[in-house]
């Protein structure tokens, strides 16, 4: 795993400046234990998803079930059309959303990073304020459905997450701290316009922060299920996260609303829930791809944040 971190490891690169052996061993031991603590529950989910259902009901969740069974996955993939379609939606939303989010946020962050721009402060506050104050779900919904008429539209899965104030601030900090103003000055003397400077000089110098933000936005888009819940009524346009998660929501709803559950039953409704093993298989199908993809692009995170998170 080659990465920027390996090239730039301040304390470790200096042989005189290292920890004593016991301390180092202690740290290793500690992290091995902690990593186990994090990974064990995830393994548990995988094991339950490939267990035999009746074994799970009888013995509870076990790391080593007495009987294995792939029935949960067979059940889920019986209707593969919907899963494939939802994966398609998720991939489109994630790719398109991340790209537009990146472009729009960078375009916003650059001007407010320029100390010579007189309105940099108010526009910084304009974006920061949105982190502290919100109008609530209903008015927000009204804007999207009545004003923009985006109900059941795939754009409703993209637009609300395009701007994350946090990442705009991170980008701004990066631009302030790492783009040498001398470079900008000389470009201006050469007669380059602001847009040219931004495209030709600023963006190429900012790849680390762009990569980091891109990856965090990828996670955000992939993991989102709430927008599907709110805006989409047709299964054709739901993301794979929501497809998996809504079953969990159904179970939660009835488990936590015993009044409603009793009333529904009294009115003649019956419930059939997927079994425990299917629930866990759903978790794996929903988060699986991104978990496996994560280590491959995680290496970019650190470099981007390295310079980006330092406040200017």
């Amino acid at each position: 795993m080659e990465s920027i971190v390996a090239e730039k490891a301040p304390s470790a690169s200096n042989p005189q400046n290292k920890l004593s052996l016991p301390a180092s061993a202690g740290i290793h031991l500690f992290f091995i234990l902690y990593s186990l603590f994090c990974i064990i529950p995830v393994i548990l989910i995988i094991m339950v998803s490939i267990s035999d259902e009746s074994t799970v009901v009888r013995e509870g969740y076990q790391f080593f079930p007495s009987k294995f069974d792939m029935g949960a996955y067979e059940f889920l993939f019986k209707d593969a059309r919907q899963i494939i379609r939802s994966y398609g939606i998720s991939i489109f939303v994630t790719v398109f959303g991340t790209l537009s989010s990146l472009i729009i946020m960078a375009l916003y962050a650059y001007p407010i990073s320029r100390s010579d721009f007189p309105h940099a402060k108010p526009f910084t506050f304009f974006v920061f304020f949105t982190m502290l104050f919100g109008g609530g779900l209903v008015p927000w919904y009204l804007v999207y459905v009545q004003m923009l008429e985006l109900k059941d539209n795939i754009m409703a899965l993209i637009l609300p997450l395009v701007i994350s104030a946090f990442f705009v601030l991170i980008m701004r900090t990066f631009f302030i701290t790492t783009i040498p103003s001398a470079v900008l000055e000389s470009a201006k003397i050469d007669g380059a316009g602001e847009l040219t400077i931004f495209m030709r000089i600023v963006l190429p110098l900012s790849l680390p922060v762009l990569a980091t933000v891109a990856l965090f936005q990828t996670l955000t888009y992939w993991n989102d299920w709430f927008l599907s819940l709110v805006f989409i009524t047709k299964d054709a346009n739901i993301t794979v996260q929501y497809l998996m998660y809504k079953t969990m929501l159904n179970i939660q709803f009835l488990a936590n609303n015993s009044t409603a559950a009793a009333a529904i039953q009294a009115a003649g409704g019956t419930f059939r829930f997927p079994s425990e093993t299917v629930r866990m298989a759903m978790v794996i199908i929903g988060v699986g791809p991104i978990i496996f993809a994560y280590p491959f692009f995680q290496k970019y995170f650190v470099k981007g944040l390295t310079v980006g998170a330092v406040k200017g």
Partner: peptide, 12 residues
């Protein structure tokens, strides 16, 4: 509309 989403969605 799925039961789990029913309250949220219909209220909205």
């Amino acid at each position: 509309i799925d039961w789990g989403a029913w309250d949220d969605k219909v209220n909205l």
